[in-house]
Design a protein around this nucleic acid. Structure first.
Lengths: 149, 149
DNA sequence: CAACCATTCGTATAAATATACAGTCTGATG
DNA sequence: CATCAGACTGTATATTTATACGAATGGTTG
């Protein structure tokens, strides 16, 4: 039963790129239209091989970017994951995140133990970083921007 | 029942950022250590809200990067998946793939409807792309190489 | 206050996904 | 040829995830 796997997986990629497919069984039916009959178990293995993940909008590829994330140091990872905007304000730095992103991001900033940081306060989607001076704020900001490279 | 939801979701983000958590039940146990008792059903809803997806290495956020990926044209996907080598030959372009990779790759090339491409022929691990001139071949080649960037 | 709505959550269950195991096939090696 | 190993898959089942439904809570309006 051999050389069909690669071809089938190619077709799977094509199918999930074109439209939102939300279950193994739906995918199985699509493949059947293309004269490829396999079971749900095989599709479970295929999707795993192809590193496709289930999202609200169908199966999507998991990119290299998301994989890297777990190898980065915590703050860099948290910034990449959560940071939406940086807003300097004199000696303060305001970080914006998606909803519920502020707590984990603030935790990562705290863990970094910047000597310039007097403290942080996290709401739901906003982290306030307090430094003693405008220069200290600029230094912290610069380092965060570097971490995003 | 309350105003705990946002805080809990923040903690979930923190937990999944720090380590690979691979099931709702494992996550439920972690939260219980933090004195937050909820059921698997609630976690299912939380993960959905937070747009976290299950991967082989635990739950991960669906980043902007991975959303882009699903917007890639099928050809870019197919090239990344199947292309092993590009060999130009005057007005011809030979694409090498792993065994059984040629058919799906050729289908993706066809779907692209390059105006420079007169036609394609696919064997098992080789796709031959025929263009009218050497310049047209170079143009097609260049665009494929760009898609791989 | 009473009536009404929206949000959040648990329970029970349905639906979806993963996997242990065994069978088939192919190719390599003695 | 016989045997072995590995890749691939289906069946049956276990595990994981999603959801229908109802209850509790808090806010709003008349």
């Amino acid at each position: 039963m051999g050389a069909h796997k690669r071809y089938r997986q190619g077709q799977i990629l094509k199918l999930i790129t074109g439209e939102a497919i939300t279950s193994h069984d739906e995918l199985r039916r699509r493949l059947a239209h293309l004269n490829m009959r396999v079971t749900q178990a095989t599709l479970s293995r295929d999707l795993h091989d192809l590193k496709l993940v289930k999202t609200a909008a169908g199966y999507k590829p998991l990119t290299a970017a998301s994989k890297e994330a777990s190898a980065l140091p915590p703050l860099a990872r948290a910034l990449r994951e959560f940071l939406v905007d940086i807003r300097p304000a004199y000696n303060l730095l305001v970080l914006k995140t998606p909803p519920s992103g502020a707590q984990p991001l603030a935790a990562a900033v705290d863990a970094e133990k910047f000597k310039e940081v007097a403290g942080t306060v996290a709401g739901d989607d906003t982290v306030l970083i307090i430094t003693p001076t405008r220069a200290a704020r600029a230094a912290v900001q610069r380092r965060m921007e570097e971490l995003l490279r």
